[in-house]
């Protein structure tokens, strides 16, 4: 891998976990990107905040429960997780409902952060 070409990547997650494939696809791309030593941030906005809800049990819908994988991100050196404050509030959630440590931020702040990125991947 070539040295010195670290880019700022942001993954924007806006979909709930099981209704569509977006959340799982995003997570897989994040894990692959981690192998290339880039500066990776994850943002959870709108229904995307549901991806991080504690206590997911998917046996009944016969889907793979991929929520434990968010806990593995730390081991992949992906530590920048941002969650939209307004989205949590609109869904009756607080930081305590989330299965990983995150930074909660108003959406306008997230917009500023997004502007600074080299690459934005949208899910």
């Amino acid at each position: 891998m070539s040295e010195g070409t670290v880019k700022k990547f942001m993954f924007v997650n806006r979909k709930a976990p099981y209704g569509t494939i977006y959340a799982l696809e995003s997570l897989e791309v994040v894990l692959i990107t981690a192998a290339f030593d880039q500066d990776v941030s994850l943002v959870f906005m709108d229904d995307g905040v549901f991806q991080l809800k504690k206590g997911q049990q998917t046996k009944g819908i016969e889907n793979k429960n991929f929520s434990p994988t968010y806990r593995a991100l730390d081991g992949y050196d992906i530590e920048k997780l941002y969650v939209e404050e307004e989205a949590l509030a609109a869904r009756g959630l607080t930081e305590d409902d989330l299965l990983v440590d995150v930074t909660v931020m108003p959406r306008a702040e997230l917009g500023k952060l997004m502007d600074e990125m080299d690459v934005v991947l949208s899910f």
Partner: peptide, 15 residues
Amino acid sequence: RNALESCLHVAQDGA
């Protein structure tokens, strides 16, 4: 869908 609404909330002036 709320896509445009979310976009208008997040986009910075001049975008």
